[in-house]
């Protein structure tokens, strides 16, 4: 009986580590190093109404195609209370062009206005359930908790920002700012697999 309890407990732990967020989940905070050398957490932004958390990287062509749009999202929504927080989930040993040095360079070259963090040790992205880059999680502060309100792509045209007919992240944040429900809560898109250390 004792053994069975232990097995059940272990199974629960196992499920726990594989959990991924769905709409309505409470997102965890983190403390990850950014390109300016400082550690960044969600709780650093006391006045934020929410966050646009984007798992992205230097090396994926889809992520690169979205860099300017991620900058635009930050300039548009930071002042409104929804700052962009970018997290690179790739293992820097497996993908050396995704190491901190390369991130610092990329951030400077592209004038990133947002913090660009490295998920060193790859502990955070599995909790969110990010599967590819770029992969967006819009969080909304509700009674002190960060609740997941959108999961998916930035828009529906990675090739040409001007030709996107659905701007999913903007629509989600606009709705939250107006106190309305997000219409499209989940989307999928092609992207690069996250490079995971085995």
């Amino acid at each position: 009986m004792k053994n069975l309890t232990l097995i059940l407990l272990l199974m629960l732990v196992h499920i726990g580590t594989n959990a991924q967020y769905d709409i309505g989940s409470q997102a965890t905070d983190f403390s990850l190093q950014s390109v300016d050398g400082k550690k960044v957490s969600l709780s650093d932004y006391a006045d934020a109404k929410g966050y646009i958390v984007i798992f992205t990287c230097n090396t994926c062509p889809f992520a690169v195609a979205y860099e300017d749009r991620i900058n635009d999202l930050d300039s548009k929504y930071k002042g409104l209370g929804f700052p962009v927080i970018a997290i690179n989930p790739n293992d820097p040993e497996l993908s050396p062009k995704d190491n901190m040095e390369a991130m610092i360079q990329r951030s400077a070259d592209k004038n990133f206005s947002f913090p660009y963090l490295l998920d060193l040790g790859q502990k955070i992205y599995p909790q969110y359930g990010a599967r590819r880059t770029p992969h967006v999680f819009v969080l909304h502060k509700e009674e002190g908790n960060n609740i997941v309100r959108y999961i998916g792509a930035i828009d529906n045209n990675h090739e040409d920002a001007n030709d996107a007919s659905e701007r999913y992240v903007e629509n989600a944040v606009d709705a939250l700012l107006k106190g309305e429900a997000v219409k499209t809560e989940k989307t999928v898109a092609i992207g690069c697999d996250i490079k995971v250390k085995k």
Partner: peptide
Amino acid sequence: DAKRFNEWIP
């Protein structure tokens, strides 16, 4: 069919 990712992937 990039513009319809969200339609055909699921």
